[in-house]
Amino acid sequence: MRIQDVIQHKAQQAVVTISPDATVRELIALLAEHNVGALVVSHDGESVTGIVSERDVVRRLHADEAVLDSAVSSIMTAEVRTCAGSDDLTDLMQLMTEHRIRHVPVVAEEKLTGIISIGDVVKNRIGELEFERDQLDSYVHQT
């Protein structure tokens, strides 16, 4: 299965981005408003400048409450691992596991086209397993 197949089945396909100059307080508001765990940091909504997650906020907030008024760029991950819609989902699972990441931006020709989370991957895998179970159950009960 390809990443684009999973993206197409997501209820919310639009990618929420945030400017690197926005404050962490604004970031928290957007995370809550859109009920997501991470945002792609972008100057223009198309390029990937970084990624910032709830984890990034919590880890910095624990050390310094003043981070709420800091720029998102001060807590974002600048070296972002991305994938293409045509990439194999198994390869993405391996990437997420090896690098302990939960959100991966999807890009095509250096432009942001989506984001895939570990939740999207797990939901897809559960769906595949349920389908296989139903097929096997049907086969067993037909004989």
Rank of each mutant, 00 (worst) to 15 (best):
V106P: 07
D21L: 11
V16I: 15
N124V: 00
H99F: 10
H141M: 12
D56L: 08
E79K: 12
E33D: 03
P20E: 00
E65H: 12
E65W: 05
V48H: 09
T97M: 06
A38F: 02
A32H: 10
Q94D: 07
P105E: 04
P105T: 02
T90S: 07
V24P: 02
Q12K: 15
G50D: 08
S138E: 13
V52N: 01
R55M: 06
A14S: 14
R100N: 14
A22V: 00
M76V: 08
E26H: 06
T97W: 08
D69T: 09
P105S: 05
R2A: 06
V41D: 03
E26Q: 10
A29D: 03
T90Q: 08
V106N: 04
V41S: 03
Q135S: 12
A78G: 11
E26M: 00
L31S: 06
D5W: 10
I75D: 03
P20N: 03
Q8R: 15
T77E: 07
G119W: 01
V48N: 02
Y139R: 15
R125D: 02
V52R: 02
E26I: 00
I115A: 06
V6I: 15
V16K: 13
D64R: 15
L129I: 09
A38L: 07
M93T: 04
D137N: 14
A71D: 13
L129E: 11
Q94F: 06
L27V: 05
L112H: 11
L136R: 14
S138L: 04
E109A: 11
T82E: 00
R25Y: 05
Q142W: 08
R133L: 13
R125W: 06
N124M: 02
E128Q: 10
A32D: 06
E26L: 00
Q135W: 08
H9E: 15
H103I: 12
R60V: 01
E54T: 03
T77K: 06
Q12Y: 15
T23I: 01
I75H: 04
A78Q: 11
F131L: 11
E132R: 12
G114H: 04
I118A: 14
E109K: 11
S74A: 14
L95D: 10
D120H: 07
I7Q: 13
V122M: 10
L92F: 09
V48G: 05
I116K: 01
V140D: 10
V40D: 02
S42V: 01
L89R: 06
H99K: 11
S19A: 04
M93H: 07
V80K: 08
T113Q: 14
T113S: 13
V80Q: 05
R25D: 10
T17A: 05
S70K: 12
C83M: 14
L95V: 13
A14N: 15
T113H: 09
R55W: 02
